[in-house]
Amino acid sequence: MLHPEHHPMARQMPGADKAISYRTSLLECLINPDPRHHRHFIDELLRETVPVRTLAVHLFAPVATELGNRWCTDETDFMQVAVASTRLSMIVNHVSHASTVSTVEPTAQRRVLLARTHGAQHTIGVSIVASCFRDMGWAVDGGSDLEIDEVLYERLSRKPYDLLGISVSRVDEIRECTEVIRRVQTTPKIRRVKIAIGGPAVVASPSAFQRIGADFVTRSALDVMQLASHI
């Protein structure tokens, strides 16, 4: 997760070297107490021509992983990680929305609904996934504020979606995810939607999620990019 450049397909993404070169400076501005640093970083990224999907795979996802690693090793405390994650989400969302220029007719756009389990503490992964889909021309609904509850089923029934993406925070939420998948697949009005699951729990224990009925199990931003290009 820290070095997607080792994947042959990821290495060929346009602007990969430029995105990789920003990792250290992005980490520094996320942790720096002065908020002006990350604002300047946003301006610098917007001046570049690196595609958002490349930034997602080679910059945003590895930096998010590094923040998690620093928390686990006590190099960074909870509050520092929380602030850094909030700043990273802000950067991802700002760059993603500013760079999205869709040439697809709205009626022809593929549409994804993103949601998360109740136990999620850090939702930067959902923002990164959303940025990948937007950059590939998808209409993106939901996000880190949408939990897998009744509101989710209401949203699914209002308009047709090609994909439902669920970010899972903890492995012990597998039963909850299984119930969502079963309910979607047995409800006539929404059962045609494909279901993808990902998130920290899936990265940690992918085998635990292989047989719960999801159409796709994703472990990285690169997986999401490949998924989006094949639906």
Rank of each mutant, 00 (worst) to 15 (best):
Q80W: 03
A208Y: 13
F41N: 07
V101D: 13
S207N: 14
A82C: 08
H94C: 06
M13V: 04
Q185G: 05
G165W: 02
D145T: 15
P188D: 14
P8W: 10
H58K: 06
A120W: 00
V101R: 06
T117H: 01
T86A: 14
R219G: 10
P200Q: 11
D77P: 08
R111V: 10
R155P: 00
A204H: 14
L30T: 10
E105K: 00
V95E: 04
C177D: 03
R155H: 11
V63Q: 10
L59T: 07
A204G: 08
V126M: 05
E28T: 15
C132S: 10
V171R: 04
S25G: 03
G165K: 06
E44A: 08
K189R: 12
R116P: 02
S144N: 09
S167V: 10
N32H: 03
R87N: 07
Q80E: 08
R158K: 14
R36D: 08
A120L: 07
T24N: 06
A82T: 11
A208W: 05
F41Y: 13
C177K: 01
L113M: 07
L152S: 06
R158V: 04
E179C: 01
R182I: 12
G198L: 00
L156F: 08
P206T: 13
L88Q: 10
L227Q: 07
E48V: 03
H37V: 15
T73R: 10
I42P: 07
M79K: 14
P206L: 05
G199N: 09
T218S: 09
S157R: 15
R175F: 15
G119Y: 00
S21G: 09
E173I: 02
A19R: 12
Y22M: 10
I174E: 09
V81T: 10
G198T: 14
L156W: 13
V92L: 08
M1I: 13
D162L: 00
V52D: 02
S99Y: 03
V83C: 06
D17A: 11
M225P: 00
V129Q: 01
S131M: 09
I20H: 03
A221D: 03
D43K: 11
G68F: 11
M1A: 15
S144Q: 09
G68H: 11
D17S: 06
Q80C: 08
R110N: 05
L163R: 02
P188A: 12
R70M: 14
D215F: 13
